[in-house]
Simulated scan of single mutants.
Amino acid sequence: MYASSVEVALVKAGRTKIRYPADVVRDDGIRVTVTAPWAAPGVRDFGFVRFEPGDVFTEHYWRDRWFAVKEVRTGAGKLKGWYCDITRPAVLRDGELLVEDLDLDLWVSADGSSVLRLDEDEFEESGLTARDPAAADAARQALDELERLALAGGLAGLLAAPSPPGDAP
């Protein structure tokens, strides 16, 4: 059986960017899926989407992949889209889900008509390419993979719940 809740800690450039509680929906030993309300204060308007109080995020984190996919819905349940963070593989330890953000992001609108690569300038400025070339390559490949999946019909196949014989410990 898995824990019913965790504390998600999003780390960027060695500093905790945000920390928030989340309910664990599923943990199959490879992917951890949690739900949480919009955790940042106030509204964040990106121009192509607004995250605001009342929004609910269903977040998928993998222990073996270099990304996280967050399904975003209004409090009333209307799908806004998917915000994808390029990250190192997630680590779940002692009730904390640790995720290292590598700056690259992808937005996929609810109807799939808009697929946007984000923050590539921040990624280049981060110095990861010089500091950890293997991680930088993995991050670029993860962004390319998510974009390919999104353009080929969406992220539904990736997010379809696996059917393991039992819950991971």
Rank of each mutant, 00 (worst) to 15 (best):
L143F: 12
V91K: 13
A135D: 06
A168F: 05
E122M: 04
E147S: 12
E147R: 15
R44M: 09
G29I: 00
E7L: 08
F57R: 08
G154T: 15
C84L: 08
G157C: 07
E124R: 15
G77E: 05
D28I: 00
V6R: 11
A39M: 00
A90V: 12
P41T: 03
L143C: 09
A156D: 04
A161D: 01
L149K: 10
R19K: 15
P41S: 07
E7R: 14
A39V: 03
G95I: 07
R15G: 06
S109L: 03
V91C: 07
E100R: 14
A90H: 05
G75T: 01
D94N: 11
L10V: 12
W82N: 01
W62G: 02
P162H: 02
T35R: 02
F46M: 10
K12A: 10
Y61D: 05
P162F: 02
I18G: 13
A138H: 14
D144R: 09
A39H: 03
A90D: 15
V34E: 01
E122I: 04
R44L: 10
F57W: 07
E124N: 13
T87I: 06
S163Y: 05
V99H: 11
Y20Q: 15
A9P: 04
V11R: 13
F51M: 09
F123S: 05
L104K: 08
D144H: 05
E7Y: 07
P164K: 01
G154E: 09
P41V: 05
A13Y: 09
V8A: 14
G54F: 02
G127R: 01
T87C: 09
R148G: 08
V115N: 07
G29M: 00
V8N: 14
E59R: 02
A135P: 05
L79N: 04
R19M: 12
D132M: 14
S5C: 09
G42A: 12
A136Y: 04
R50G: 06
A135G: 07
Y61N: 03
H60R: 03
G112V: 00
V99A: 09
A9K: 07
V11N: 13
V108A: 06
E7K: 11
G153Q: 07
S4V: 08
E124W: 14
D55I: 01
T87G: 03
G154L: 12
A142H: 01
G166C: 10
Y83G: 14
G153E: 13
A168N: 00
L155K: 14
L143R: 12
A150T: 06
A36F: 01
Y2T: 15
R73G: 05
I86G: 08
